[in-house]
Design a binder for these strands. Structure first.
Lengths: 143, 143
DNA sequence: TTTTAAATGTTTATCGGTGAGTTTAAACAT
DNA sequence: ATGTTTAAACTCACCGATAAACATTTAAAA
């Protein structure tokens, strides 16, 4: 599905064009929301549905669950790309991820992530340096 | 169902207009009640029914259960949005959540929350800072 | 060099939110 | 029981924001 790393820009109306390779999968609608690690996540409609239901079924009596629901669900906005493949990013989402003009759009199989270019560089650098340890930890959660 | 974050205002008659995307689901009636974390919760009639039954079935012998029932059920008021999508918020509910003029209306899938704008900002800030830990903890409850 | 596609910029029109005004109903007092 | 006052609910209309449509420029491919 979505793979790769692309440099894009946000225009002064808050629109970002998504890679043309990704557009077919988003044509029938997509949902943008706050992601973890201060980036935005973009899901195709059907993928989103699964995730949203999973989140919504968390117990409202747990504080963590409420917080997470608010992060992901209250942060979500469903939109349709315009006919040249751009999606609108509401101000509150741009604020959350600190997105200015230059951004990086990356494909992570079933979701797309949008990062500010500089924090993406930092993230990559850090990850490359620690990749071995990161990988070791994965075995603990059954990879 | 309900997702997104919207800035709205309460007029001098104590009415708040709900986002137009939400209206269809509330047209046949809704229930407003005290929510956890000092905000108001708005449920569509049928969703409310599920919740109310669940609460009502709690053991009356448990003090916490009685308190929670009183918070949620005694505070509830069912109303119908007017034809431009506004609902009346009784004074005691506005007091509970400390709602003045500027509020934020958020969609959390099967419920709607109404927050004072400033406490929503605070909540978000705190949550964004701790999002990783919050997310890690969710795995403990099977997410 | 020509043609096509993608990216960027601009305009326009529709929709949604808010405020104000009007009517209806309810409560109280005469 | 009737009249008066108050408050709640509904309707209308304006203004602003947002997003869809259009147009132009740039880049890439044939």
């Amino acid at each position: 599905m979505f793979i790769g790393e692309f440099k894009h820009t946000i225009d002064d109306k808050g629109r970002v064009s998504l890679p043309s390779k990704f557009r077919a999968a988003l044509a029938s609608g997509c949902v943008v929301t706050r992601g973890l690690d201060r980036c935005l996540w973009v899901y195709p409609k059907d993928e989103w549905q699964n995730l949203a239901e999973k989140i919504a079924s968390l117990p409202i009596t747990q504080k963590n669950a409420r917080s997470f629901s608010r992060l992901m669900l209250a942060g979500a906005t469903d939109t349709n790309p315009d006919r040249v493949g751009r999606v609108n990013l509401p101000a509150y989402l741009r604020d959350y991820a600190d997105l200015k003009k230059d951004v990086v759009v990356v494909g992570i199989y079933n979701r797309i992530e949008i990062w500010p270019i500089d924090s993406w560089q930092n993230f990559k650098k850090e990850m490359e340096e620690n990749s071995s340890e990161v990988a070791e930890n994965l075995s603990e959660i059954g990879f």
